[in-house]
Amino acid sequence: MATVRLSFSPAPVHVRTARLVGVAVARRAGVAEELLDEVRLAIGEACTRAVALHNQYGVADLVTVEMSDSDSYTVRVIDHAPIEASIGLTKLPPDELAAESLTDEDLTTGVGFALLAGFVDDLKVSPVEDGAGTEVRMVWPVQRR
């Protein structure tokens, strides 16, 4: 099993770097070519969420992305924002998406999780074991090499 770990300051500019690394490691791990767009999007969404939460709560800690391959390709995106900030993970119905009352932030959060849930079959969101924070764990199958 190989592991690649990337930690970055919670700034939007670094999310692209995380996507690029995540897809490069996925390709190397043997994730099917047709899944790579979904891997790119899902890692981006998870990191975007983490960066947004860190900024919202003034948490300067690094966001961590850990990628590992064994029987599958597993990506864990770990933030250190308060747990209660992780609510609102549900998919929004269409008639609410364009409602005037919905803020841009809430819309983006809802849409982001709809994308994660839609693109990742094996998705788990759980509190980190030590301290504040959430881990978004995503798993994709790998092909035999």
Binding site: R19, R40, E45, A98, E100, L107, T108, V111, G112, L115
Partner: peptide, 18 residues
């Protein structure tokens, strides 16, 4: 590449025009 932030911007523009 288009993510949720971009989608949020597009919805915002649609609301503004509405």
């Amino acid at each position: 590449f288009l993510d949720s932030t971009g989608l949020g911007v597009l919805v915002g523009a649609m609301k503004r025009l509405r």
